[in-house]
């Protein structure tokens, strides 16, 4: 009897406000998703028609009036490679220090705060800093090298954070077991901790790559230039010269030259790369979760 009464109360009280409130919340969340889908489809729909073999494998040719983005693809790869070459060892090392060595809370706090600050600095400021420091003070000029060095500072906190998270998931028993067997700290790091946190490091590398692919403001100042010519000479010649990456090239086509179809072509390439990197991270996170 009493349970029926409670039941009937429940049925009687329809709460229009509740339904409306939850409806609104769901609508906002789905609205965000719809926006993303719309953006991605719009970019792909306008960009994919511009993509073809010549677009992807040649340089722009003003005489034949053909457009190609191959030089900026190469520039992008160079910058990513050299930035990671610098930021991965340092970032991983910093993360190892924080999780394995740091006994002085103040030093650890300083490093963690510095990493937070680095990840909060806007890219245009990295551009100003990179120009003043790498291009002028160190005399590297506006070049891909300056660009790589600037981006490696940007990538540092990303790699540190993911590596630190991965190191945190290594069970304490592994460390204690190895210590008990007489291994020193460096031996434990080399043979146990780094192999165990490899996926974290890779995740950091992919996230950092994603950021570098989309980077434009900083590179416009420190690597600048155009990407008119096919790459020639050695890697070192290339690195010493200025050149634009895909994102910078997109900006030049869209903003300076008003060529929207080429801009959307590059945008489609960027979105495809960004989506692929995103999926890879997700896939790895899934594997990591199972392991």
């Amino acid at each position: 009897m009493s349970s029926e009464a409670i039941f009937s109360v429940k049925v009687k009280r329809k709460r229009p406000l509740e339904t409306l409130g939850f409806g609104l919340i769901a609508a906002v969340a789905l609205g965000v998703a719809a926006l993303v889908v719309y953006f991605v489809i719009y970019i792909l729909a306008r960009g994919i028609p511009a993509l073809n073999i010549r677009f992807l494998t040649t340089a722009e040719n003003p005489i034949l009036e053909t457009i190609g983005i191959f030089p900026s693809i190469v520039n992008t790869l160079y910058i990513i490679f050299f930035s990671l070459l610098i930021s991965v060892p340092i970032g991983v090392g910093g993360a190892v220090y924080l999780s394995e060595y740091a006994t002085d809370r103040r030093v650890a706090d300083a490093i963690e705060f510095a990493a937070e600050v680095l990840s909060g600095i806007p890219s245009i400021l990295y551009g100003v800093f990179g120009y003043v420091f790498f291009c002028l003070a160190l005399g590297m000029g506006v070049s891909l090298l300056s660009g790589s060095l600037t981006l490696s500072v940007m990538a540092l906190p990303v790699i540190m954070r993911t590596t630190q998270e991965a190191l945190r998931t290594v069970p304490k028993a592994y460390r204690e077991g190895a210590l008990g067997l007489g291994a020193g700290k460096w031996r434990i790091i080399r043979t146990i901790l780094l192999p165990c946190s490899l996926k974290g490091v890779l995740t950091g590398m992919i996230l950092a790559t994603g950021r570098m692919v989309g980077e434009s403001a900083a590179l416009l100042l420190v690597a600048g230039g155009s990407a008119m010519y096919m790459p020639r000479g050695t890697v070192f010649n290339q690195m010493a010269a200025s050149g634009s990456t895909l994102s910078v090239e997109l900006y030049r086509y869209a903003y300076s030259r008003g060529d929207n179809s080429t801009a959307f072509g590059i945008a489609a390439v960027l979105i495809i790369i960004s989506g692929a990197l995103n999926l890879t991270v997700r896939f790895m996170a899934g594997r990591l979760g199972k392991a």
Binding site: V32, G214, S216, L250
Partner: peptide
Amino acid sequence: LSGIPSVV
């Protein structure tokens, strides 16, 4: 959404 480059 957060992976879309700012120039895009």
